[in-house]
Simulated assay, not measured.
Amino acid sequence: MTEKTVNPFVKLGLELGPVVLFFVFYGRIKDEFFTIGGVEYAGFIVATALFIPLILASTAILWWLTGKLSKMQLMTAVLIVVFGGMSVYFNDERFFKMKPTMIYLLFGGILGIGLLQGKSYLRSVMEEVLPMQDEGWMILTKRLTAFFAALAITNEFVWRTMSTDAWVNFKTFGLTAAVFVFFMFQNKLMQTYAVTVEDQDT
């Protein structure tokens, strides 16, 4: 299947929609308990159970609309299924709360391995939409590796020391805002090392 063009707002809605729905649904049932199959589940676990098919559905629709999924999207979906499924199966919210930590450690670790080899794996993923010189890619990759490590540590601190409500707010808004701010502050780097049409023609 060839890659197709999709409305960026539709794409953004599919990527963020499941997270927003999880936040809304959790807010409605967070203080409730549900008995299913003779086992009592807290609202957080039920919201997690519903989040898994939502993320799978949104990922499948993205693939259907675009004809392509990035490795990051696939790995994120797999980790959500694994850690979300473990939370539901063991009736233990800690597994799902650890999921962002695992995602950021995995992505940061992959980028770090590339850096040790003198390569930017980030470039192979983003070069088509963000053409930059080699030096710019290496700088951005180093920064993003450190950023992922910081997010993993922060997530561990929040879920281990704060309430579930605080973690849900952090996961829904804090992490999203952090990623946005990080890339906003990379604008100067991207402009400095941008590859122009003249560079591509030489």
Rank of each mutant, 00 (worst) to 15 (best):
V39R: 02
Y121F: 15
F182W: 11
S124T: 14
I103F: 07
G43F: 06
I61K: 06
T161Y: 03
K71A: 15
E93N: 06
I29K: 05
V82E: 08
V82M: 06
N7M: 04
T172M: 15
F25I: 11
G17L: 07
V158S: 03
F90I: 01
G174S: 08
A49H: 01
G118V: 08
R94A: 14
F83N: 00
D201Y: 11
N155C: 10
V10P: 10
I110E: 00
G114F: 05
Q73D: 10
W159D: 06
V81E: 02
A166G: 07
E135A: 14
L14K: 05
F34E: 01
L65T: 02
L16W: 07
M184F: 14
T48I: 10
L130T: 12
T145M: 15
T48V: 05
F95P: 10
I113C: 09
G136V: 06
S124V: 08
L175C: 05
M190R: 15
A49I: 02
S58H: 05
G17Y: 09
T59W: 11
P100D: 14
P100K: 14
I139P: 00
Y121C: 07
T5V: 12
K30Q: 10
G38K: 02
F182A: 05
N169E: 06
F9K: 15
G85V: 04
T101H: 03
N7I: 01
M72K: 09
V195F: 00
E93Y: 02
Y26T: 06
Y89L: 11
D31W: 00
Q200E: 13
T161D: 03
F22Q: 10
L21C: 13
P8C: 01
L189I: 10
T101C: 06
T202C: 04
E40R: 09
S58Y: 06
N155A: 08
A178G: 09
G37P: 08
V125K: 13
F147A: 13
A149G: 15
I113N: 04
W63G: 08
S163D: 08
M86K: 07
L79S: 09
W167H: 12
V81P: 00
A60C: 07
Q133K: 15
N7P: 05
I80W: 14
A47Q: 11
F147S: 13
L115I: 14
N91C: 03
E3G: 01
I113F: 13
I80F: 15
L56W: 10
V197L: 10
